[in-house]
Design a protein around this nucleic acid. Structure first.
Length: 875
RNA sequence: GCGAGCGUGGCGAAACCGGUAGACGCAGCGGACUUAAAAUCCGUUCGCCGCAAGGCGGUGCGGGUUCAACUCCCGCCGCUCGCACCA
C-alpha cells in the first residue's frame, strides 16, 4: 500500500485540466440550451501574498462552480484583480518601487498561489483594473454617464484626509478618522466629480425586496443606508429676534430673519410642539454665535465632541436658547422658543427640528432638562384622555390625536395627511420625501487610479475627452517625492489642447475612487478580451446577473450598493439589457478564518510556525521561552497569526486546506484554524485513498446491476451511499458545507466497516467509493481525480456529471419509531416505512417497555406522526 | 441609545417543517498491533444514581403555548455585529 502523495498528484491533475480546457466557460452558442451559472467570488486586491485565511472565500465559490458544472450548467467562474489603490502608492513612497511594478509583481505571485489551490477558474478571462485595456472602457462609461446626466461636478464640503492627502467618502470616515490612515479628518471645500446615485434611490430601495437570495442582514443595512422617510417641510416665521441679527438680503430660508425650515415625519404632533432646535452648525446658530460668546462656546463644545456616534450617544443632551421666537404655523399668536441643540444633525433633513416632547424621547429629555412646557397630543389606544399623562417616557407609536383643535379624533396617519393639507393651504409647508442616501463623490487626488477623462479649457470650461482619444493613460514616469497627487506635479502630462477650440487646456488630475473599478468588473468578465467595448451587450445579457456571489460582510453597503447603482446606469446608457438592474441574484457572505495570536516574552507578535507546544505549554522555538497566547482573531499580517499557503500546500496539499476551511464551522460563521483540525482533514485524505487503492479497478458503473444475493450489511452500505448522495447534494445547494463534510465522514466510516470479499461486499464498496469520489470532487478535486482513475474511470471526475441517488435505495424501507409516554421516550419499534397508523398504534401499545408506564393511568390519546414518532398520552 | 443576530458536551458543531438532543470532527480515556515510537485499527466519552437492566436531570435564566419545545410566544441575562440621536 502506498501513501497518497499530493506533491505528485496535485500538479499532475492541474496540468491535465488545463490541457483539457475543462474550466472554460462556453459561449452561448456552444452551450446549446444548457442553463448558465455565473459563480463569482469578490476579486482580491493584490496586496502581496495570500495566506490560508484568504482561501476560504475562493474555495466556497469553487465548490459551487464545480458542483454546478457537474450538474450540467454552463459555468462562468472567473478571477481578476482589484488592482488600483493606495497601498501601491504607499509601497512606492516607502520603498521607492513603482506602483505598477509592485502591483503586477503581486498579481503574478498571487495568481500562482491561487492556481495551487486547484480552483476551477477560466483564466482566459483574467483582468486587472489597473490595465489600460480595462480602464479605457471605464472611461468610456464615465463619458456616457456624464452625457446621461448621471455625472456632475459640485463644490462640496469633503472629508479631507491630511495624511493620505485625499478625499474620503462619508462611508470611508470611521469615528472621524480616515479608514486607511487613521488620521483625524478635516473639512475642505473642493470641486468634486459626483455620481448621481440618488437618481435611483427609490429603485435601489424597492428592488431590495425582490433580492430574496440575499441575507436579510445585508438588505436591512442597505435599506437603512438609503434611509427613505416621508414627511413634511415646515416654515416657521420669525416673531422676534435679537436686534443684531440682520434682515436677509437673499430671501433664502435659514438665513437671518427668514422663516426657519424644519423637516418632520410627524406633522400630526404639531400641536404638541414646544420648541425649535437647530444644529450647532446651522447657519442661524452660527449667525447668533458671532454676537453671543455663550452660543459660540456651545458651538465649539459640540464640535469638540467629535462625530463618533458612541461619543454623541453618551453625551448629555444639551442646548442653548438662541433668543429667537417663532410663530406656530397654525396659530400666529402662539410663539415658541428657538434653541440650538447637540442632538440635531446638520447633515440630515434641514438641520432643524421642532420638538414635540410627548412623542419623542430625545425631545422629552430635552424639554425636561430645560423646563420647557409640553402636553401630550397622541392618545395611546385604550388610554383615558382625562388621566393620560407623559412624564419621562415618550409615546412614539400611533394613536388618536387629541388636544389638537382641527386634528382631534383623527388617527396618526390621517392627521399627518390633514396637517400637511393645512400647511400647504397656509403656504407654511409641503409634503416631502427625505433620503439619507447622498450622491457618490468619486474624485480622488491620487495617482494610482483611473484618470477621469475630462479636460479643463480656459474658454470652453470642462470638456469631455473625445472617445477616440481614450484611454487617457496614466503616465508611468512619476515621482513620489512630495505629498499629494503626482499627476499635479508631472512636467507634461496634464498639459493638452481643448478638443473644442484647440486652445491651451489642462487635463483633470483627479482619478476615480477604486470602488468605481469594482462596480462593473463582473460585467467585464462576460467578455473580458473585448478591445472595442466594455463588453458585448448580448454576452453580458446572457451571463448576468451573477447567479452566486460570495464575499465578506464588510462590503454589505459600499461595494454592493455602488454595483447596483452602476448596473442600472449601464442599463440606462444602453450598455446592457438587464430589466432588473440587479447585478447579483444571490449573495452569500462568508465567515473568516481566525487563529490564535502569539506574543513573545519581549512583547513581539510571533508566527505560529515560530512556536511549539512543549510539556503542555506554548514556547518560542528560537529561545524556548514561554509564549503569551492571545485572542483568537482574523488572520492578519500585522498580528502574524497567519499560515502561509505555499508552505501549507507543500506540507499537506491544497485539498487538505480546502477540506479543512469548509469542515468545522458553518460557512457564514468564522472557522478557527487549528493544528488538530488540519490533522483530521489530512487523515481523511489518507483514509479515502487507502480504501480506494485497496479496492482498485473496476468499480461498478452507474446503473450497473448488483450481483445476486445483495442483502444485509452490503445492502445497508448501498442504502447509506445513496442516501449520502441525496444529503450531500442538498447540503451543497443550501450552503451547508460543514454538513456535507460530516456526511462524507459518515460514508467513509461505513465503507471501512464493511469487510470481506464476497461479490456483494465488493460491489457495495466499489459503488460507494465511486459515489464518494464524485461527492468529494467539488471539495477535494485533486484527490477525487486520482481516485477516479484508480477506480478505472476516465477522463475526469470533474466532467463525469453529478451522481444520482437511486430513489429505491435512498428511501428507507423501515424506520425506527421512538415511543413516548407523556413526552418521555420509553422505547422504540421498527416498522416499515409508511406503515399504517392503526398498526403502529397497536405495536406501540403492546411494547413491553411501555407497559409499566401505561399502568399509571388511562390511555387518553395516541399521537402517531407517520415515520417519525409515537406519543401516548396517559392521564 | 437604536437595529439585527447568536447562546447546545472539555472544544468546533449537528438536529432542514415543533417529533429519539449531541450526528460528524478535534481532544480525552481504555485496548490491539509494535522491541519501542509514529502511523493504523477496535472500543468508549453530557451529568448524576445503579453491578446491570434501567431511571432521573439536561440546549444561558424565569415563565407560557403544545400530546410533544434547542426550535414558537413573553420577560430577563450575556456575547457579537451594524449604525444614522434620522426628527
Amino acid at each position: 500500500m502506498s501513501r497518497y502523495n499530493h506533491r505528485e498528484v496535485e500538479p499532475k491533475w492541474r496540468a491535465a485540466w488545463d490541457a483539457g480546457g475543462i474550466h472554460r466557460a462556453l459561449s452561448p452558442d456552444q452551450a446549446k440550451g444548457k442553463p448558465k451559472a455565473y459563480v463569482l467570488e469578490m476579486f482580491p486586491y493584490p496586496s502581496g501574498r495570500i495566506h490560508v485565511g484568504h482561501s476560504r472565500n475562493y474555495t466556497m465559490g469553487d465548490v459551487i462552480a464545480r458542483f454546478r458544472r457537474a450538474n450540467g450548467y454552463n459555468v462562468l467562474h472567473p478571477m481578476g484583480w482589484d488592482a488600483f489603490g493606495l497601498p501601491a502608492e504607499n509601497a512606492a513612497m516607502e520603498r521607492g518601487i513603482h506602483p505598477k511594478g509592485w502591483t503586477y509583481d503581486n498579481i503574478a505571485a498571487m495568481r500562482e498561489q491561487l492556481k495551487l489551490l486547484g480552483l476551477a477558474i477560466d483564466w482566459s478571462r483574467e483582468i486587472a483594473t489597473c490595465d489600460a485595456s480595462y480602464y479605457k472602457h471605464q472611461q468610456a462609461m464615465f463619458l456616457a454617464f456624464w452625457k446621461k446626466g448621471l455625472v456632475y461636478r459640485r463644490k462640496q464640503k469633503v472629508n479631507w484626509d491630511p495624511v493620505d492627502m485625499t478625499v474620503l467618502a462619508n462611508e470611508q470616515v470611521v469615528d472621524g478618522k480616515g479608514w486607511r490612515s487613521g488620521a483625524p479628518v478635516e473639512t475642505r471645500e473642493l470641486e468634486q466629480w459626483m455620481f448621481k446615485v440618488t437618481a435611483y434611490g427609490d429603485d435601489l430601495l424597492e428592488e431590495l425586496q425582490r433580492l430574496d437570495k440575499w441575507p436579510d442582514k445585508v438588505r436591512l443595512m442597505q435599506s437603512n443606508w438609503i434611509g427613505k422617510s416621508q414627511g413634511a417641510k415646515i416654515w416657521w416665521d420669525i416673531a422676534s429676534a435679537p436686534d443684531f441679527l440682520p434682515s436677509s438680503p437673499t430671501g433664502q430660508p435659514n438665513h437671518a430673519r427668514d422663516p426657519i425650515e424644519v423637516y418632520t415625519t410627524r406633522p400630526d404632533t404639531l400641536f404638541g410642539a414646544s420648541f425649535l432646535a437647530l444644529a450647532p452648525d446651522h447657519p442661524l446658530t452660527k449667525a447668533i454665535a458671532a454676537h453671543r460668546p455663550d452660543v459660540a462656546a456651545f458651538v465649539a463644545e459640540c464640535a469638540a465632541l467629535g462625530t463618533s456616534e458612541a461619543d454623541i450617544e453618551k453625551a448629555e443632551k444639551k442646548g442653548i436658547d438662541l433668543g429667537i421666537r417663532v410663530k406656530h404655523p397654525f396659530d400666529p399668536n402662539w410663539e415658541l422658543p428657538v434653541w440650538a441643540a447637540n442632538f440635531v444633525l446638520s447633515t440630515y433633513g434641514t438641520g432643524a427640528i421642532f420638538g414635540s416632547p410627548a412623542g419623542d424621547q430625545r425631545d422629552l429629555d430635552f424639554a425636561n432638562k430645560y423646563g420647557l412646557p409640553f402636553k401630550p397630543v397622541v392618545l395611546p389606544p385604550g388610554a383615558d384622555p382625562a388621566t393620560y399623562a407623559v412624564t419621562d417616557t415618550a409615546y412614539t407609536d400611533d394613536g388618536t390625536i387629541y388636544n389638537s383643535r382641527f386634528l382631534d379624533g383623527l388617527s396618526t396617519k390621517d392627521a399627518i395627511t390633514r396637517a400637511i393639507e393645512e400647511l400647504v393651504k397656509l403656504g407654511a409647508g409641503e409634503a416631502t420625501t427625505q433620503y439619507r442616501l447622498r450622491d457618490w463623490g468619486v474624485s480622488r487626488q491620487r495617482y494610482w487610479g483611473c484618470p477621469i477623462p475630462a479636460i479643463h479649457c480656459e474658454t470652453c470650461g470642462v470638456v469631455p475627452v473625445p472617445a477616440k482619444d481614450l484611454p487617457v493613460a496614466l503616465p508611468e514616469d512619476v515621482k513620489f517625492d512630495k505629498p499629494g497627487n503626482p499627476l499635479e506635479h508631472h512636467p507634461t502630462w496634464k498639459h493638452t489642447t481643448c478638443p473644442n477650440c484647440n486652445g491651451k487646456a489642462t487635463r483633470e488630475t483627479d482619478t476615480l475612487d477604486t470602488f468605481v473599478d469594482s462596480s462593473w468588473y463582473f460585467a467585464r468578465f462576460t467578455d473580458a478580451q473585448n478591445p472595442d467595448a466594455p463588453f458585448d451587450k448580448k454576452l453580458a445579457s446572457y451571463w448576468l446577473p451573477v447567479d452566486q456571489y460570495v464575499g465578506g460582510i464588510e462590503h454589505a453597503v459600499l461595494h454592493l450598493l455602488y454595483s447596483r447603482f452602476f448596473t442600472r446606469a449601464m442599463r440606462d446608457c444602453g450598455f446592457l439589457d438587464l430589466p432588473s438592474g440587479e447585478p447579483f441574484a444571490s449573495l452569500f457572505t462568508q465567515g473568516m478564518v481566525v487563529h490564535e495570536t502569539y506574543k513573545s516574552a519581549t512583547g513581539q507578535w510571533l508566527l505560529p510556525e515560530d512556536t511549539e507546544i512543549k510539556d503542555g505549554a506554548r514556547v518560542e522555538l528560537r529561545t524556548g521561552r514561554p509564549v503569551e497566547v492571545g485572542a483568537i482573531e482574523k488572520m492578519s499580517k500585522s498580528k502574524k497569526n497567519v499560515v502561509d499557503l505555499d508552505a501549507f500546500i507543500t506540507d499537506f496539499g491544497a485539498d487538505v486546506a480546502r477540506w479543512f476551511v469548509l469542515s468545522d464551522s458553518p460557512p457564514e460563521r468564522d472557522v478557527e484554524w487549528t493544528a488538530g483540525g488540519v490533522e483530521g482533514a489530512w487523515r481523511f485524505v489518507q483514509r479515502v485513498w487507502a480504501l480506494v487503492e485497496a479496492h482498485g479497478a473496476p468499480a461498478p458503473k452507474p446503473g450497473e446491476a448488483p450481483p445476486p444475493g445483495m442483502e444485509g450489511e452490503a445492502h445497508a452500505l448501498r442504502q447509506l451511499a445513496h442516501r449520502s448522495v441525496k444529503h450531500i447534494t442538498d447540503a451543497i445547494e443550501g450552503f451547508r458545507f460543514n454538513s456535507a463534510v460530516a456526511r462524507c465522514y459518515e460514508l467513509v466510516n461505513a465503507i471501512a466497516k464493511l469487510k470481506g470479499d464476497a461479490p456483494t461486499a465488493v460491489f457495495a464498496r466499489g459503488e460507494a467509493l465511486r459515489l464518494l469520489t464524485q461527492l468529494i470532487a467539488p471539495f477535494m478535486p485533486h484527490l477525487a481525480e486520482e481516485c477516479w482513475e484508480k477506480l478505472g474511470f476516465a477522463p475526469f471526475v470533474a466532467t463525469a456529471g453529478w451522481p444520482e441517488a437511486d430513489p429505491a435505495l435512498a428511501a428507507l424501507s423501515s424506520v425506527t419509531l421512538p415511543i413516548q409516554v407523556n413526552g418521555k421516550r420509553r422505547g422504540e419499534i421498527e416498522v416499515a416505512k409508511g406503515a399504517a397508523e392503526g398498526e403502529v398504534k397497536a405495536l406501540a401499545l403492546a411494547h413491553p417497555g411501555v407497559a409499566p408506564f401505561l399502568a399509571a393511568g388511562e390511555v387518553r390519546k395516541v399521537i402517531v406522526v407517520p415515520d417519525r414518532i409515537v406519543n401516548i398520552v396517559v392521564g
